[in-house]
Structure formats: structure tokens, C-alpha cells
Amino acid sequence: MSIGNTPDGNSPEDERPFEDDRAAEQPSIGRALRQARITAGLTVDDVSNATRVRIAIVHSIEQDDFAPCGGDVYARGHIRTLARAVHIDPAPLLARYDADHGGRPAPTPAAPLFEAERIRPERRGPNWTAAMVAAIVAVIGFVGFTMVKGDGDDSKTQVAEGSTPTTSKPVTKPTVTKPADPKPEPSDSAIAAAPQDKVTVQVSAPDGRSWISAKDHNGRLLFDGLLERGQSKTFQDQEKIDLVLGDAGAIQLHVNGKEIADEFQPGQVERLTYTKGDPEVG
């Protein structure tokens, strides 16, 4: 019997608890992401540039600290994005996160958002065409009334000179009929018509909040921050707008005066590019 063996013949390494083996086989979410990043030969800066997730948040997630994400929806979106960037399946990590944090958050209902957009086109501005027509008709009526009144004055002069007086009929003012206001043609979107020589993108967060990033065609950063609930941002460029949406399910887009009807999921990270011709007709 060797000195290093226990009385039952097993080595000391065989006496390790079974739970330690399971823990070694199932690393934490942050540790799994970090190991996959190192295996892929990527640095934290590389992952941050590829995913648009800030360096501080990448470090926190790799240390299993999800507080800087700002909530479960954002944490799940970051986990999914980082897992894809380091070439591993995000589903087991998301399942483990849901188990540790009380389950998957319920999706935000989309019905109020579309209902609000249908109400906006009913806003009408002053109808200047109808006002001009009414003014022209009024001027014509005034001129006609002045001419008829002048004829009446001539009749009174003839009576004063001694001719047989005649009873003149009372002057009737011409009836001015105001034309009916033409109904405006319905617009394709809830926002005003955008200029055709530029690309115009409006990003709104009607029922939630989301981190967004916007750049012009030169790569210049137009906005990088959190869009709070009820806020909106509008971006314009001569050629294109590049967008990154941290939680696409909370965002409503209007591009070149038209609503984008894509159904994004809560927590979904989207990278979008729009030009002057978007959205395509048909």
C-alpha cells in the first residue's frame, strides 16, 4: 500500500465532492463568455467594437455583475449579443440567467403604439386654399354690390330733376357661398413629409426605453445614449443613417416619412442602415 492512498484504496483526488465536478463543468455566465472570448482570440475592446456594448458593461458581465445593464431586458440582450460575438450558443446562457433572475420578462404589448400612430394623421393645419377662395368671392361680391348701388343713385337723381318718380326695387345683395373645405389626402405616416434629397430617421420609445446609437455616412456619431420612455430623436443625412438599437422591441421607427412595420422582439439588438430610397415601395 502506498503512503498517498486512503484505506479504501482510492487516491486523495478521488475524494473531491461531486458538487465541485458539476461546478467545474458548468461555469458561470460571465466566465463562459470570458473563456469563449479568449478562445476566439478577442480582446474586450474587440468585442465592444463589434457589438457596440460599452467596455465597462462587457467587463461587468464577465464578472457576473448585471446591474450596469439597467434591467433584465437589457441584460438578456447583452448576453445574446456577446455570445454571438464570441461564437457560442446564447440559449443555455439565457436559460441560466432566467433561472437565476426569476424567469423571462413578459413582452411589451404593441397595440397601444400602433393605436397612437393612427390618431396622429388626423391633425390638420389651416386650410389656406379655402381661405383664399373665400376672400376672392367676397371681393367680387363687394364690387357687384357697389355697381348696383351706383345705378340706384342715378335713379334718385332723375326724380329730383322733375321726371315721374318710379319705385325702384330694393337692392339684393349677392349671396356669397363659401366653398366646402377640401378634405386633405391621408398621409403615409404620422410624421411630416421628409425632404426627398435626404434620409430622415425618427426613433421613438413610446412604451419603454432603449439604448441607441446613430451615425452619418461619414461614420460621425450623431447620438449615443439612453432614449427614455416617451422620448424621440430625429436624424438626417445626405446619404445614409446607421442605427444600433439596444432593445429594438421598445423602439418605433419612421424612415423618410413612413412607418417601419418590422416586429422587433424585446431585448433584441438590431443594427440597421437606411438611405434616401428607404423603405422600398412594394
Rank of each mutant, 00 (worst) to 15 (best):
A214W: 02
G144Q: 10
G257K: 12
R124H: 10
E62D: 07
D100R: 02
D14L: 09
L221P: 03
P7Q: 05
S2R: 12
A50Y: 00
L42K: 15
P186R: 13
T234I: 11
D20M: 11
G150E: 15
S155V: 11
T51H: 04
P107D: 08
T6C: 08
N127C: 12
T157D: 12
D197R: 14
A106K: 13
P170D: 06
G208S: 08
P107F: 07
A250W: 00
L113E: 15
F235M: 07
S189L: 02
G282R: 11
R34Y: 12
P266V: 11
V201P: 06
V47T: 03
D151R: 05
V199L: 07
P206Y: 08
R80A: 12
Q26H: 11
R16C: 10
V133E: 05
W211H: 13
D151K: 07
Y74D: 14
T146L: 06
Q231N: 15
K173R: 14
A180N: 09
N127T: 08
M132C: 07
V58F: 08
D153V: 15
R31C: 00
E280Q: 11
Y274S: 05
G125P: 01
T39V: 09
K173E: 13
I88W: 02
V44F: 07
R209A: 14
H101I: 04
S48G: 04
A99T: 04
H101T: 13
I61E: 00
P279S: 02
F264Y: 15
P112G: 12
Y74V: 06
D20E: 13
A192Y: 12
